[in-house]
């Protein structure tokens, strides 16, 4: 069990990136949703022990992870949002280097690296310098290094950025498989990523935990509060000022608008089946 209690991070200059954030995590996938600047990456960095919080605690199986980070690092796999590689090293050499830092050696290191290379399907590129890898290939190397050592906790921060749609689907499948018996924290601002894999979704906004619920609970909360309407182009600006619009599409018969609100607000608006994006938008509106 991973227990995060009243975690706060205040940067020099006064910015409060995390504000009394608390959550308890067990095996399964937690989707961390929030807009840019919400505090997701700060939270991920603290959990990965590369950043120190201003206050609060992180406990792993009852032990204080902040006081003794080496213990949690042994069971942690971390894929950061932005990461570099050593261009001159091959994929295998890079994984071997990080594997050594994890404490793998000898036959175990070689076997572990081989497994990861096959898992992320980079066998043909493994002996090539990383400088020649595409963005998607680098991301796969990042995934591979995060899974070295069979971690119990996997933290992935915006992992599908830069992946093509096919790779994105495969990555989601991988996360789903990983979640058996592991804690997986997936931080993203792409709703479709969490929709596919998350057991629970935590919505974070301005450093605070706004809501934590299953996808079903979020959708149920949004039921009856999602509407769709077709308006003329000249009505759109006024509509956008009065309601939270979740999608706009321009068609031959007008502008099709989907929005969230407590009531229809405009003539001709009909109730729509909520999607997770609508539910997320509604949560943000209620939290604002």
């Amino acid at each position: 069990m991973l227990q995060i209690e009243r975690l706060t991070k205040r940067y020099a200059g006064g910015t409060v990136a995390l504000d009394q954030f608390s959550i308890e995590l067990g095996p399964g996938v937690l989707g961390l949703l929030g807009p840019n600047g919400a505090g997701k990456t700060t939270l991920m960095s603290i959990l990965a022990t590369v950043l120190r919080p201003t206050s609060g605690s992180v406990r792993w199986k009852g032990n204080d992870a902040l006081e003794n980070p080496a213990e949690i690092r042994r069971v942690l796999g971390y894929l950061p949002q932005d990461f570099g590689v050593y261009d001159r090293l091959t994929g295998v050499e890079f994984l071997q280097y990080l594997g050594r830092l994890k404490g793998l050696s000898g036959r175990g290191l070689r076997a572990s690296v081989d497994e990861m290379i096959d898992l992320v399907n980079l066998r043909n590129a493994a002996s090539r310098p990383l400088g020649g890898y595409s963005g998607g290939m680098r991301q796969r190397i990042g995934i591979a290094q995060a899974l070295l050592g069979n971690p119990e906790i996997v933290i992935v921060d915006e992992p599908t950025v830069g992946l093509d749609p096919e790779e994105r689907v495969r990555f989601r499948n991988l996360l789903s498989e990983l979640a058996h018996g592991r804690i997986v924290i997936l931080s993203t601002h792409i709703v479709s990523d969490v929709e596919a894999v998350a057991d629970r979704i935590a919505v974070i906004r301005k450093g605070k935990l706004v809501r934590i619920a299953t996808p079903g609970e979020l959708l149920a909360h949004a039921a009856g509060r999602v509407f769709r309407v077709v308006v003329g182009a000249e009505q759109l600006p006024q509509l956008q000022q009065s309601v939270a619009v979740s999608s706009i599409s321009r068609k031959a018969d007008g502008v099709h608008v989907r929005f969230v609100a407590d009531t229809p607000r405009i003539g001709g608006a009909v109730e729509a089946e909520p999607t997770l994006e609508d539910a997320y938008l509604l949560t943000n509106v209620e939290a604002a």
Partner: peptide, 27 residues
């Protein structure tokens, strides 16, 4: 053909991990 991350089910294998100052220096 490189087809992205493997789509089939997998099982990760644990290997002994002994992180240490010496091993990190050597790395």
């Amino acid at each position: 053909v490189e087809t992205g991350t493997a789509a089939t089910a997998f099982k990760l294998v644990s290997h002994p991990m002994r992180p240490s100052f010496v091993s990190s220096v050597i790395a």
